[in-house]
Design a protein around this nucleic acid. Structure first.
Lengths: 219, 219
DNA sequence: GTCTATAGTTAGATAGAC
DNA sequence: GTCTATCTAACTATAGAC
């Protein structure tokens, strides 16, 4: 019996083996994220994921039962980061400051987590076959809470009477665009890729237009 | 030798056969659009496209050499409709009216051509491997011309000094969102699908926020 | 836990009769 | 131009030695 098998029985894997597992899972998830981003679920190849991760293909199946399970793990990762990153916006905040900060944070996410952002869009575009629970659960709660905050701001006359959901979707779409459409933006500006300054400038344009569009002073 | 083969040699196919060809190509393209939308290029299956079109699989290959050629035909269709639909915006237009009309038209496109819109997004997200020429050609010209119009408006003090490209991308993303993220919007509002009224209301919110955000009076 | 070899299955593409 | 049968390649997944 192997050390790992013994450890599983006793419920405590040796530290070294847990570390190997953690490192390999990280490598595989990273490689899978790149592959699913570039080719979509149907176009992704387990062999290429293995090559990117620097492991034999069989090892991918050792850690993840099948392609679907690996894809679900990548999605879970994306949703976890998403949940952790966007706890902003409470009723006591200044509306202009809170919205400006949210736009800038979301844009930064599009820049630093572009592949994750695109995989998320791909999943939603296919009808969210693996994220229905998340959309109808955590995300719906999040949206309802933020919409309530915006309505309280509106009740206090601190922001224009725009549909809170429409405002949230506007911010999501305008920032997400810089991940999903990065290739188009680069092609239109005759460049190979976008720089940090491009995202920063775009975020400032969005802050300016959206805040003013809601009757708020610039921040 | 068949009538078709004879006709090909003489350069004039009989009317009936041309009609059969046109009808079948339309059916196949429609079925392919649905399939590529639902599953992406890699996940699309020629057999399902054939089933949707009500034809044997071999016939799909008779009209389109392979899967890639069929996908390219679908993309060409999408780009053609796109080019035909958005010739709006000239320097003599009233900025508020022109932008409002563009937002409403683009939103209508997201509603009535949702599958096409999503396939386009998917292609761009994969790095636009089959649309580089279009992006660097027709689309770049289109964007440059519209940006020039916006700059003339700005020179005449008719609209705020916002980056014209950022404004165009904002309108594209905010309207495109209602095609790409329809599943998420429906899930968040606990409904199975979106109605025309949803798109219309969203368009009016966007017109209101974006026009005001650019220093324009509502239209 | 790692890796080679391969089983098993699917799907794109084609041959050839009609 | 249509359709059935089939070829072939590619890919997911697993068996089993180490």
């Amino acid at each position: 019996m192997s050390a790992a098998a013994r450890a599983t029985r006793t419920g405590a894997a040796p530290v070294r083996e847990r570390r190997v597992r953690a490192r390999n899972e990280r490598r595989i998830l990273k490689a899978a994220e790149e592959e699913f981003d570039r080719y979509g679920f149907g176009g992704a190849r387990m062999q290429r994921i293995a090559d990117r991760a620097g492991l034999p293909k069989a090892n991918i199946h050792y850690y993840y039962r099948n392609k679907q399970a690996l894809y679900n793990a990548v999605l879970a990762d994306i949703v976890a980061i998403w949940n952790a990153a966007f706890d902003l916006i409470s009723p006591d905040d200044d509306p202009a400051e809170a919205l400006a900060a949210y736009i800038r944070t979301k844009m930064e996410y599009s820049r630093t987590h572009a592949a994750a952002a695109r995989i998320f869009t791909g999943e939603i575009m296919r009808g969210a076959p693996n994220l229905g629970e998340y959309l109808r659960g955590d995300l719906r709660t999040w949206v309802a809470e933020r919409a309530a905050v915006i309505r309280r701001w509106q009740g206090a006359g601190r922001i224009d009477q725009v549909d809170p959901h429409h405002l949230i979707f506007l911010i999501w779409s305008a920032t997400q665009h810089w991940a999903d459409y990065a290739a188009q933006i680069a092609a239109l500006s005759n460049r190979k890729s976008l720089a940090r300054a491009d995202y920063d400038a775009a975020a400032e344009s969005l802050v300016r237009i959206i805040l003013k569009g809601c009757g708020l002073a610039p921040r």
